[in-house]
């Protein structure tokens, strides 16, 4: 019995020591090669920068490992914009630098797929977009789908809005901040799709999110949509309308913003107070003064702040 226990302990000990040795040696080698790896990355960066200007007559440096090239180019792509970036992208496409990422998009590990999405988004060539669309449509993980959608939104490759919403199961689930970001970036490029959707039958959280998204582009053409949202029966949507008015900053919305200071729901009154302050609606003063004795502490705070922000000072 004692012998067996000793043997077990010894096995554990041996395994542990082996593990420590592997870790330390790996790290030590890594440290030794760090300088070389860095030089390689720099060389790759310089090679591609030279090729951007060379008009493509020089080929990719063959002796550099693909990982170094990918790392250098994707980093450069993050830093640059304009025609030089386009040229660099074309070179990356030519060298098929993103092939490993396309392969990783089929990995069984969500972590690997998520990393692949970042690379694919950065390159954004037609093959990358196609791979992202497959992920959005078929991936098992909702987080991965959302990441793919966000990438596609920035690349302008998102399927029609209706489809995107059902692929992300947004009819059933509450939108998160990442959804709001996704639709905000979409609103910048395809506001008409969002306007179309607003005129249809959709859930209140979705409607509120779309109003938020639409106003982030700051387009004055949407004032009518916001005014309609301000009369919505869901307080969440009314709040979104007030936020939108604040963002767009058009004085014409005074007519429908002022009455909302007496909205029955406290968080709508909070938004209304902040909006009149931001837009400088001095005619709101009397109502704001009443709100400083509101039953909700948040309404009192925001009304007080609004009074001190409005021209004329706190009085």
């Amino acid at each position: 019995m004692a012998a067996l226990v000793y043997e077990l302990s010894f096995l554990f000990l041996a395994g542990m020591l082996a593990l420590i040795t592997v870790l330390v040696v790996r790290r030590w080698q890594d440290e030794k090669n760090r300088g070389a790896r860095e030089r390689m990355r720099h060389r790759a960066a310089r090679a591609y920068l030279a090729r951007i200007e060379g008009g493509g007559e020089s080929a990719a440096p063959a002796d550099l490992p693909p990982a170094a090239k990918l790392e250098a180019v994707s980093h450069l792509l993050r830093l640059m914009r304009g025609t030089e970036r386009d040229r660099l992208l074309a070179l990356a496409d030519e060298d098929r630098l993103f092939d490993p990422a396309i392969a990783a998009s089929n990995s069984s590990r969500p972590a690997r797929r998520s990393e692949a999405i970042l690379t694919l988004e950065q390159f954004g060539s037609p093959r990358c977009v196609q791979t992202l669309q497959v992920l959005l449509a078929n991936d098992a993980s909702m987080t991965i789908k959302l990441e793919a959608a966000a990438a596609l939104a920035r690349l302008g490759g998102l399927p029609p809005l209706r489809d995107t919403i059902s692929l992300l199961a947004l009819e059933a689930n509450r939108p998160t901040r990442l959804h709001v970001a996704l639709f905000a970036s979409l609103a910048a490029t395809h506001p008409e799709q969002i306007r179309q959707l607003l005129s249809e039958e959709i859930t209140p959280p979705l409607r509120a999110m779309l109003i938020d998204a639409l106003s982030s582009s700051g387009d004055l053409a949407d004032l009518g949509d916001f005014e309609r949202a301000a009369a919505d029966e869901e307080p969440e949507v009314r709040s979104a309308a007030l936020r939108a008015a604040r963002r767009v900053g058009d004085p014409r919305c005074e007519a429908w913003v002022l009455p909302m200071l007496t909205d029955p729901v406290d968080f709508v009154r909070v938004q209304a107070a902040q909006t009149v302050a931001k837009l400088g609606f001095t005619r709101a003063r009397p109502k704001l003064k009443q709100l400083t004795t509101d039953e909700s502490v948040w309404v009192r705070i925001r009304a007080g702040e609004a009074l001190s922000l409005l021209p004329g000072g706190a009085s």
Binding site: R41, H42, A45, R46, L49, A50, H75, L76, L79
Partner: peptide
């Protein structure tokens, strides 16, 4: 602190 950015700026 970004070495690739340094390469990019230096190049130009």
């Amino acid at each position: 602190d970004d070495d690739i950015l340094a390469e990019l700026v230096r190049h130009h």
